[in-house]
Nucleic acid binder design. Structure first.
Lengths: 234, 234
DNA sequence: CGCCGCTTTGAGTCCATTCAATTCCGGTGG
DNA sequence: CCACCGGAATTGAATGGACTCAAAGCGGCG
């Protein structure tokens, strides 16, 4: 494991205040591993054995049920995932797979729980992390129940767009069908939603979206600080 | 505050391992208050100032946005709520109101954070509580995205029914429109869904639901241990 | 007994999905 | 360099589910 990787991990809020010895204990127990794209890292229903951290690449969180699959979020470096399952020593509720070749740091669940019990600063950071994740999912649930499909798309564009001279530009880092699944619609509906947004100055070319009139989009999305702030997930 | 109330609160997993002095500190700072029905306790968007605990009565968690409202869960004694907002010192993402006359224990956010920092056992319990709540919301999101309206209703009935000689019996403790909102449908659709469940041996009389053939219902709900286990919310 | 709120039922509309077919795009091999 | 291939994305048509609007039951409470 490279020193620079350790540095980036150490810089995570989760490990910010943790003692040297405890951090070293975590890193000693941890594995750093490379995965190609499209590898399923976590199968929902299995025992949580590792706390995962995306160091490089992109990971999709999803859930499946009777043949269907729905995307719950996308993770870019550097973020942790499935912290909750590790802490309560229960099975994963979500699955995860790499979307691109990735490097993951995996810390054994037991080590996490041990350090948690012995390091107050780490315990505090874990709680903050967990609480923020909780709030992220609450936002997602609210968005799912209270906004229409087009509004969810508009909000996602606004949240992920980059301001440039000629308007908002969004680059989708994965297949559109994943975005559709995350937004809770089919790929066809997403396509039609993009078409409908043309009236609002949105043009699509491949995975790059340009929004000439960001304000119109924002108005459509009915942005809610309670829904859109932060925006850790996806 | 009555001694028996303190006992029930103390018996909560959240306070199980906490030291006497720390628990006393929390209780000293806490307020026990009665509220009539239909009182809004928490307004989303405001600063989190108290950790709330339902000691008696029933509380609805909900969220609103441009005139609409959606129910996120129902709380019966004894449960805590809005722990996450208290811990991260941010605004509430959900609102809460009493559905029936209730008694609430309210612990100032500062006291919670203080004891959290000083009592390892409490810190551990907070994390477990938080993690379980997180998992509850993940289940709710999955249910919302992966099951149809009727399936959500069937699953809710199965999860909340009581086994009796003549099948599953569910007593809805609040207005049906609240249940509809929780399940993510309109009251009309809920009514029609109940009608559709007649084919599965479900009969409705007022707020009491009887399910002659629980198995049929279970099959319809496509029960998923990952979705239905636990079932803290609602 | 009659009012009022909740619930149910009915009819019509809209939106999202499904199924099917076509187009677009990136990568490969000739 | 270009033609071809295959997966992804779009488009079209038809179906279906959920919603809105409207009106009629039902029940509780004064």
């Amino acid at each position: 494991m490279r020193a620079t990787d350790i540095q980036t991990v150490r810089a995570l809020p989760l490990f910010a205040g943790i003692g040297e010895a405890q951090f070293a204990a975590l890193m000693d127990a941890a594995l750093l591993q490379r995965f190609p794209a499209q590898v399923q890292l976590i199968h929902e229903g299995e025992e949580a054995d590792f706390l995962h951290i995306v160091v490089e690449g992109m990971v999709e969180m999803f859930a499946s049920g009777n043949g269907e699959e729905t995307t719950i979020g996308f993770l870019a470096p550097v973020s942790t995932f499935i912290l909750a399952a590790v802490l309560v020593e229960k099975v994963y509720l979500q699955s995860a797979r790499t979307l691109t070749p990735s490097r993951l740091l995996m810390i054994p669940a037991g080590a996490v729980r041990k350090v948690f019990a012995g390091d107050t600063a780490f315990a505090g950071a874990v709680v903050i992390e967990l609480a923020e994740r909780y709030r992220d999912i609450v936002r997602q649930l609210k968005t799912q129940k209270m906004r229409t499909g087009i509004e969810r798309l508009a909000a996602w564009l606004v949240a992920h767009g980059e301001a440039t001279p000629d308007g908002l530009v969004v680059r989708i880092a994965f297949e559109k069908v994943k975005l559709a699944s995350f937004l809770g619609m089919t790929r066809e509906t997403l396509s039609r939603s993009f078409a409908a947004l043309a009236d609002y100055g949105v043009s699509v070319s491949g995975r790059t979206i340009r929004c000439a009139d960001a304000d119109a989009l924002i108005r459509l999305a009915r942005p809610d600080p309670l829904l859109d702030e932060h925006g850790q997930p996806a």
